[in-house]
Design a protein around this nucleic acid. Structure first.
Lengths: 253, 253
DNA sequence: CGTGCTGTTGAGGACGATCAATGACGGTGG
DNA sequence: CCACCGTCATTGATCGTCCTCAACAGCACG
C-alpha cells in the first residue's frame, strides 16, 4: 500500500536508473514504515542529528548545508525526489561532518531504520544501486567543483541552474520552475546575494530566465546550457543523458 | 609475494580504515596481477581511456583533472597511496565524464581487471569497504566545495594544503613536504598562478610554510589548520581523526 | 497595518585576474 | 665544462569582477 502512485515514482525512476530491479524498488518501498512531512524552511535533519535512520526525499526539494564559523551558510548540494539525505551517516557512522538538511519547499520524507536498511542490503542488486547512488553524488560534487573553479559568476550560476533542472527532469519533474530563492543560489554558488541578483537579471535580459516571474523560471534551457558549458551526461540517467547531450551538440553548430 | 612490505602498507592502512578485514586486504593484493610505473607528469589515465580495469595508486601522488573548453585544467582531486583512480568507471560504466589522471610524482599503480574486481566484491566486507571509499571521496569533494565557496585565497589554499597533508598522514606518510607545484595548486584552488604564488609567500611570511625550500613544505601545521578552519575529522580515518581534531581544539583556546 | 523576508538598485572599495618580464633551477647536448 | 632550453617561481603594474554597505520596494504573514 505504500508503494503507491506519485510518491514512489521519482524514487523508482531514480533507483531503476541506478540499476535496481523492479522488485528491488518494491521491497525498498515496503521498508518505509514512516513518512514525515516537513514544511518549507524547516530542517529535515538538524546539524546535530544522530538518529539511527536513513531519510529519502519523496517529494519537494531540500539542500544540504554546512555552517561556517562566521555564520555563513554554505550549500554543498540539493536533493530532489528520490535522493538520499543522509545515506553516508548509515555507512560511515564515525565520520564527524556537521551537515544539516533544510527543506526549500514543503517536503515528504521517507524514513527507514538502520535495521531495515541492513535487510535491504542483503539484496546485491539493491546494494550496488545504493553504491551507485553514492558515486553519482560524488560525480555531482566533482562537476560542481570543476564549475566553481574557473569561470565568471554568470557561468557558475548557469551551471547550478542547469544541474538542478536536469536532476529534476531525471526524476520525472519537467517544470521550468526552480524552487529556491536567490539567497539559496548565492550560498550554493559562493557568491554574494547582491551579485547573484545582478547575474539573474543578466540571464533575464538574455531571455534565458523568465522576466515575468519573481521566481527562477528557465525559458531557454538550450541557451542556459551553452552559457554554463553544461554537459549533463555525467548525471548518467539514461533517459536524461540523451536529452542534455543533444542539447549541447545543437548549440555547437 | 605481491603482498610485500611498503607497497601494500598504505593501501592496507586505507582499506582497514574503511572497515576491511585483514584477510580482505590480502585477497585484494593478490588480485593485483600487474603493476605499472608512471613517471612524473605522465598520464596515469588518459582522458579517453576505456580499458576494463581499475587502477589503485600504490606509491606517489596523482591528480584527477578535467579540461575545459578554453583549455583550462581544473583539478578536482588528488590521489594518495591507497586511493582508487577510476573506481567509478567500473561501477558506472555508462557515465560520460571526461576525466584524466596525471602523475605529479613518479608513481606505482596497481591494475586490477574488472573480472577480478567482480570476484573481490563477492566478499561483503570488502564490498562495503569499497562503498565507503566512494563515500569518503564524496565527503572530500563536499568539504572542498564548502571551502571553495566562501573565504579568501589564503583560506582556500590553506585548506587545500591541510587536506593533502592530512590525507598523506592517513596512509602513513608523515613528510611535511607536499609534492605539487604552485601551478597545480592554482588549478585545484581555482586561482591564478600569480595569486597562488603571492598567497604562498604570505604563508611563508607567517612561518607556516618553509622559506628555505622552493617546494611547498609545511612547518606549522597547527597554524595552517587555523587559517583554513580545517577540521580533519571528516576524513574519518580513526588514527588521523584524533590528531587533527586535537589540532583544532588547541588553537581555539 | 506593521513585521519580516526576499528582491532590487546604487556607489565605493577590495581582492584577485591578467599581461609582461625576469630569475632560478635542472636537464640536455655540444 | 659550459651554453642552451624548458619549466617553474617570482615580481610589478593595471584592470575588472565581485564584495560590502546601505537603502528601498514588493509581497506574504499574522
Amino acid at each position: 500500500m505504500f508503494a503507491d502512485c506519485w510518491s514512489g515514482s521519482s524514487l523508482g525512476l531514480k533507483l531503476k536508473g541506478l540499476g535496481a530491479q523492479a522488485d528491488d524498488v518494491d521491497i525498498f518501498l515496503r521498508a518505509v514504515k514512516r513518512r514525515v512531512s516537513v514544511p518549507a524552511h524547516d530542517n529535515v535533519i538538524g546539524e546535530a542529528d544522530t538518529a539511527a535512520q536513513v531519510r529519502v526525499l519523496l517529494a519537494g526539494t531540500t539542500c544540504s548545508y554546512q555552517r561556517k564559523e562566521d555564520g555563513t551558510r554554505s550549500i554543498v548540494s540539493f536533493q530532489h525526489p528520490g535522493d538520499f539525505c543522509d545515506l553516508h551517516r548509515y555507512i560511515m557512522p564515525d565520520v564527524k561532518s556537521v551537515i544539516g538538511v533544510q527543506a526549500l519547499t514543503d517536503c515528504t520524507v521517507a524514513v527507514i531504520g538502520y535495521r531495515d536498511m541492513d535487510k535491504l542490503l542483503s539484496r546485491p542488486t539493491l546494494a550496488s544501486a545504493l553504491w551507485r547512488a553514492s558515486m553519482l553524488e560524488a560525480l555531482i560534487y566533482r562537476e560542481r567543483l570543476s564549475s566553481m573553479g574557473g569561470g565568471t559568476a554568470l557561468k557558475r550560476v548557469a551551471h547550478l541552474l542547469c544541474e538542478q533542472l536536469a536532476r529534476q527532469e531525471a526524476v520525472g519533474i519537467h517544470a521550468p520552475h526552480l524552487p529556491f530563492s536567490q539567497i539559496d543560489v548565492a550560498d550554493a554558488a559562493g557568491l554574494s546575494i547582491v551579485h547573484v541578483n545582478r547575474t539573474i537579471q543578466t540571464l533575464r535580459g538574455l531571455n534565458v530566465l523568465s522576466k515575468a516571474s519573481r521566481a527562477i523560471e528557465v525559458v531557454d534551457r538550450k541557451q542556459l546550457a551553452k552559457i554554463a558549458e553544461f554537459d549533463g551526461r555525467y548525471l548518467s540517467m539514461p533517459a536524461l543523458a540523451l536529452k542534455w547531450a543533444v542539447q549541447i551538440e545543437d548549440t555547437r553548430n
